[in-house]
Amino acid sequence: MATAPAGGPRTARTVLSGDDISRVTTRMAHQILEKTSGGADVILLGIPTRGVPLARRLAARMRDVEGVDVPNGSLDPTMYRDDLRLRGVRPLEVTDLPAGGVDGRIVVLVDDVLFSGRTVRAALDALAEYGRPRAVQLAVLVDRGHRELPIRADYVGKNMPTARLESVQVRLSEIDHEPDEVRIVAEDRRAGDGDGRSPEPRAAR
């Protein structure tokens, strides 16, 4: 018998199924192509952890749809966060920019959940250190609200109003080794890590 974790019962409800995620990803790929005139000069940079496979998926869809090869990579904003001292030290993730860099390109940052906006803010700072993109856009699978900074997404898979104490858990097969899913967990007191990321340990490298 499962026991409820300390802090009260957690109730989880699925808000996006695997099929939903697939459809949403395809739509976002179309939107990016449309808004960037066929994806010319676009590079997709995933924000670790789950933004990275999402960026890869978006690139694959864009190739399926338009036949363009959109470079993709990852950008770890950890070292630029303004909330490092609020919790234990965060392990660094991989930053891996496509060859050719970011100068003059349209960089689409990709993340799974948009919450306070602080991760994106840090990512913008990090990006600036690598060069000067022509434009920076933001794609997120879920926008759960509660912004603390003037940041909005250009491409949103699903707008999902949440309570602050709820947490949004994204499961992607590449990272989590379980079927794709987005669920909302009515949380015990434990807050998420500030940007709607699930507090589960990150995937092994």
């Binding site: 770890d76 070292m79 630029y80 490092l84 660094l92 993730e93 991989v94 930053t95 700072d125 250190e129 690598y130």
Partner: peptide, 16 residues
């Protein structure tokens, strides 16, 4: 390993 990538950049400084 991540820190060493900084050595390849023009701005070799992090605000951390």
């Amino acid at each position: 390993e991540q820190m060493s990538l900084l050595g390849d950049r023009s701005v070799k400084k992090l605000p951390t």
